[in-house]
Simulated scan of single mutants.
Amino acid sequence: MRELRIRAGYETLGELHRASGVTVATLSRIESGVQIPSPKTLNRLAPFLKVSVEDLLAAAGYLPEKEEDPNEAAARTIEAAISDDPELLEFWQELVKRDDLQLLFKQVKPLTPKSIKKIIKVIKAIEDAEATED
């Protein structure tokens, strides 16, 4: 829960307590793994942590966790591999919206970040060449 708290903008447990009303002691026990939060507590925390109640209930073991969409996982892997290159990242963010490339995601085998970066560069070079031909 610590990662969710920080991502939501609460640097300290006290800040989250003041916003949500859940005691610092309870928040501390939840973050340290000493206490499993009740569904009522999760319901109070969800809007402040900027996640759905269902996601928190699943993470706490009250509901089965949702299966991750393989396309979303592949897209995150690709973004991580090219995150150090703003031009490629911007190109990728436009490319990922294209319906004609959705099949590509399903066919790609696991690749190294270096290989992913090379492939995106090749796709960009092809797109750039086609744009100059038009």
Rank of each mutant, 00 (worst) to 15 (best):
R2I: 15
R2F: 14
E3K: 01
L4G: 14
R5P: 05
R5Y: 08
I6C: 04
R7C: 10
G9R: 03
G9Q: 05
G9T: 04
Y10E: 01
E11W: 07
T12C: 13
L16T: 01
A19R: 00
S20N: 00
S20T: 00
S20A: 04
S20M: 00
S20H: 00
G21C: 06
G21L: 11
G21T: 09
T23A: 14
V24Y: 03
V24P: 00
V24K: 05
V24A: 05
A25G: 12
T26D: 08
S28V: 07
R29Y: 07
R29D: 03
R29I: 02
E31H: 00
S32V: 10
Q35H: 09
Q35D: 10
Q35P: 03
S38H: 10
S38D: 13
S38Y: 09
L42F: 04
L42C: 01
N43V: 13
L45F: 02
A46V: 04
P47Y: 11
F48Y: 14
L49K: 01
V51D: 09
S52A: 07
S52E: 10
V53Y: 06
V53N: 04
V53C: 10
V53H: 03
V53W: 01
V53R: 02
D55L: 05
L56V: 03
A58G: 02
A59W: 01
A59T: 02
A59H: 03
G61L: 05
L63N: 04
P64N: 15
E65P: 02
E65S: 13
K66C: 09
E68R: 15
E68P: 07
D69F: 14
D69V: 15
P70N: 09
N71L: 14
N71E: 15
E72N: 12
A73L: 15
A73Q: 10
A75K: 11
R76N: 14
T77A: 14
T77S: 05
T77M: 10
A80G: 12
A80M: 07
A81N: 05
A81K: 03
I82H: 04
S83K: 10
S83T: 08
S83V: 11
S83Q: 13
D84Y: 06
P86V: 15
P86A: 12
E87L: 09
L88P: 02
W92Q: 01
E94C: 12
E94W: 14
L95T: 12
L95M: 15
V96F: 07
K97A: 13
K97R: 15
R98W: 11
R98T: 07
D99N: 14
L101N: 08
L101F: 14
Q102H: 07
L103P: 06
L104N: 04
L104P: 01
F105N: 01
F105D: 05
K106R: 11
K106T: 14
Q107P: 01
V108E: 03
P110V: 08
L111D: 10
L111Q: 12
T112C: 08
T112R: 09
T112G: 09
K114D: 10
I116N: 00
I116M: 00
K117Y: 06
K118G: 08
I119C: 11
I120T: 06
I120D: 13
K121F: 04
K121P: 02
V122M: 12
V122L: 14
V122H: 11
V122K: 07
V122I: 15
K124L: 06
K124F: 03
A125M: 11
A129L: 13
T132N: 06
D134T: 10
